[in-house]
Write a protein that binds this DNA or RNA. Structure first.
Lengths: 159, 159
DNA sequence: TTACGTGCAAATAATTTGCAGTCCC
DNA sequence: GGGACTGCAAATTATTTGCACGTAA
């Protein structure tokens, strides 16, 4: 039962439209990734994809990614950043995380896992242990099924 | 009735400013409740408090409460609803729940528990079992402590 | 070419804030 | 009476959308 939150998609080489075989080459990988979900590998999408997936698991807001792109001398409009993030999310390459009602975070790790939220600096961090699961599943109401479980462990500095 | 409220409030009769002894009389209770956290029992706060705590555990957005108040022939401005909800939250009488980034829900049940979120109609429901907890606590980073754990189990209609 | 993609600015949506008038203690 | 409270409208913040122009296939 605990496997509900199991970690499988690390190598998401299945699913309709998903088939990128990672090579380690950022350009090639992002290109494949976009192609595989039917998005044209345009200049801005390539750049954003590179920023997003170039390093390990990231948690970014649209604004943050926009700034990064700008600093990286990649001219993109904020609207395009939003559009791209939404498209990638819809395509299953990103996962949206709601934590404080205001900002919306996008997580490059789409496998099942939970988060720490640092209340101080509003930073989001993956909880390393993917097996951190429930003692028992809640009793789901008739006619419904679990679509996803989102858990956020809020942390504050110890005094 | 107000068991839910009675339950926790009775227990946290130690915190500063918290000490209302519920009697079952909504007017009296809300009055006490407000007094106890240092808020003047004005017409609109009394009315909103009555709507909020009159029945058991509720999950409302500012907009929803505003409509309820309007329908109940209680003239309140949306701004005041927001202000009041925030004041009550700050006072510990309400708990904020972020679930989809857009709307913010306020839960009249401030005790530790989790939620079901119906993806279809965007309804929030308490998970009855308060013992639905983690198999093991996540390893908290040095210097930090858990402030709260928010878990949302998203449900969709089974097809 | 030609549909898809992009930038910009205007449009929404949710929530907050400034301030003049009102009400509670 | 005086400060706390309220309502309204204007201000913010986060995000979406319409549309003319650019660009990948």
């Amino acid at each position: 039962m605990s496997e509900v939150i199991a970690d499988e998609r690390t190598k998401e080489s299945e699913g309709p439209g998903h088939a990128p075989v990672l090579t380690g080459c950022p350009w090639h990988d992002v290109n494949e990734m976009l192609q595989s979900v039917g998005l044209r590998p345009t200049r801005q999408r390539m750049a954003l994809g590179w920023l997003l997936f170039g390093k390990g698991g990231r948690h970014l807001t649209a604004e943050m990614l926009y700034e990064e792109a700008t600093h990286a001398k990649v001219p993109v409009s904020l609207a395009t950043v939003y559009n791209t993030l939404n498209q990638l999310t819809e395509a299953g390459l990103l996962r949206q995380v709601s934590v404080d009602g205001t900002k919306t975070y996008f997580d490059t790790n789409t496998s099942a896992h939970h988060h720490f939220y640092m209340e101080g600096n509003h930073e989001l961090v993956d909880i390393p242990d993917p097996n951190l699961v429930l003692q028992k599943m809640p009793e789901v109401p008739e006619g419904y099924e679990i679509s996803r479980i989102d858990m956020v462990v809020r942390l504050r500095k110890r005094r």
